[in-house]
């Protein structure tokens, strides 16, 4: 069998490291023996390969270890049972935090009837009831369909992914709730007439509208951009200066909307910077309406 419990000579190098690696492998093998026996309640001497792989990956995730590369063996704790128990307690705390975040996210849904947002949050809420962090900590049982403006990195797994997703939802929802729902709905309908039924993100178009208004010195709450002014402003700017304009617009918009939380301000700034490639393409086409929709 070739998996995390095998290692190549080239990965090991010197003989001392080789011995340490073998000792670490033995330790992990012994741990997995007990861990798997508990999983099957002692009723089976073997498990399918995919189950074994996932149990191992989950246990390493729980212990905060990266399963790839030779550093696994150098970082492997001496007492794996204790490291695993500590990891489980950490996951319990994260799960409790996730439940709180989810309850807050459900309460924070803006007055914009978007089915995928509410369905996703309800699915996550149910997921916390069946999240099996003892055996399959990397898998969170939920249908997360609603797209964020700034996606959670794929490197995050299990409850780490979900909690970060919920943090971002809370930031987005807080922003959307500061805006007039009727105005936001008009803007969203301009971008996508069927937005209520689609899985498209609500924050990004509204934030774009706010940023466009801020850059052209309009009322950010009305989200109306003076496109000719914006075109004239941006078309001569090099990328670095365009980024600076957008960063400044994000600051001004955050101030105008009384957004004080650093994470929320940073999220808006990152959203603004993420617009740069689209703005560049729109400027080339001479039509900024695709980025800053008028309604």
């Amino acid at each position: 069998m070739t998996n995390k419990l095998t290692v190549s000579h080239t990965e090991m190098g010197h003989s001392g490291a080789k011995q340490d690696t073998l000792t670490a492998q033995m330790r992990l093998w012994k741990f997995m023996s007990g861990h798997t026996a508990r999983y099957v309640s002692g009723e089976s001497s073997s498990v399918p390969q995919e189950t074994a792989d996932e149990l191992l990956a989950s246990a390493l995730f729980t212990m905060g270890l990266t399963p790839e590369g030779p550093e696994l063996w150098t970082h492997l704790p001496e007492n794996l049972d204790e490291a695993y128990r500590t990891g489980v307690r950490r996951l319990e705390r994260k799960t409790a935090l996730g439940c709180t975040l989810c309850a807050a996210a459900l309460k924070s849904v803006p007055a914009l009837p978007c089915h995928s947002l509410t369905d996703t949050l309800k699915s996550i809420d149910r997921g916390f009831g069946s999240y099996d962090f003892r055996w399959f900590a990397r898998e969170f049982p939920a249908d997360i369909d609603y797209q964020l403006c700034l996606s959670v990195p794929e490197t995050l797994l299990g409850v780490d992914y979900v909690n970060e997703y919920l943090r971002r939802i809370l930031l987005e929802n807080d922003f959307l709730r500061r805006m007039d729902a009727t105005t936001s709905a008009k803007l969203l309908s301009r971008v996508s007439p069927n937005w209520r039924a689609l899985v498209c993100n609500l924050y990004e178009p509204v934030a774009s509208g706010v940023l466009g208004a801020a850059m052209t010195k309009r009322d950010v709450r009305k989200m109306q951009t003076d496109l000719p002014v914006l075109q004239a402003l941006l078309e001569t700017l090099p990328r670095s200066q365009m980024e600076e304009e957008l960063r400044l617009a994000a600051e001004q918009a955050a101030d105008a909307l009384n957004i004080a939380h650093p994470a929320a301000r940073q999220y808006l700034a990152r959203t603004a910077l993420a617009l740069v490639p689209r703005i560049s393409a729109a400027l080339d086409a001479g039509n900024l309406d695709g980025v800053f929709p008028q309604f």
Binding site: L5, T6, H9, Q25
Partner: peptide
């Protein structure tokens, strides 16, 4: 690639 497995040592 030559591999050294703990399984073979323990088996």
């Amino acid at each position: 690639m030559e591999e050294l497995s703990v399984m073979s040592a323990v088996r």
